[in-house]
Nucleic acid binder design. Structure first.
Lengths: 106, 106
DNA sequence: CAGTATCCCCGTAGATACTG
DNA sequence: CAGTATCTACGGGGATACTG
């Protein structure tokens, strides 16, 4: 089935938070855990932690850990997720058309 | 937040079956309920019914009902979902890169 | 043929508390 | 600062049975 790579992509960027996290890192460049939590509105440290871990395992973000006190960990986008941005833009345009279809009254 | 149209798109094509259903209708053109169920591997009539209903409400498919005996209902893709195909192809290419990242051993 | 009604399971998301 | 452990809630997805 030819759509299985699409399914694969959806597995990796699906869920409630992942795209929001990627989007936030995109806008901020290198960013730390607590800064990220402040900017991704409403996310708990648990969810952020889980999602960052998965995104890292899927190769979408890079994690840099500095063994300092207090601890410092920085996150940034990988090349893979930067390629994703273009795709998301076209998906966004399509989503906009869906929106217009569903709200013709506005 | 600029990604909300993406979220909107994901809401509409998300879930386990929707892309599979769209893909199947794309390959078959106009198609009937039971034919669709046979070609979308593993789907129950309940799930197919639910998903077709939502896809229709979101403007992705067209439903033609003929009041015959036995009843005949045909489904086909709308223009909206045909525009989606191009986007899905680029998403599929990206998903393929993710796949290559995760399985460098193969 | 083309569905709907009902009940159930399990995985994702979240709240709370705690730690190196 | 940067997380993890534990428990709970909710909803998508599914099995089964039934119908115009």
């Amino acid at each position: 089935m030819e759509d299985c790579y699409v399914r694969y992509a959806m597995d990796v960027i699906g869920g409630k938070w992942k795209l929001l996290i990627i989007w936030t890192i995109l806008q901020n460049g290198v960013i730390r855990f607590n800064d990220l939590q402040r900017k991704v509105d409403g996310i708990s440290s648990l969810m952020l932690s889980k999602n960052l871990k998965e995104l890292k395992e899927d190769g979408l973000i890079l994690r840099h850990q500095y063994n300092e006190i207090p601890p410092r960990v920085e996150y940034e986008l990988s090349e893979l997720s930067q390629k994703l941005i273009v795709v998301l833009q076209s998906l966004s345009e399509w989503g906009c058309e869906v929106y217009k279809y569903k709200k013709p009254s506005i």
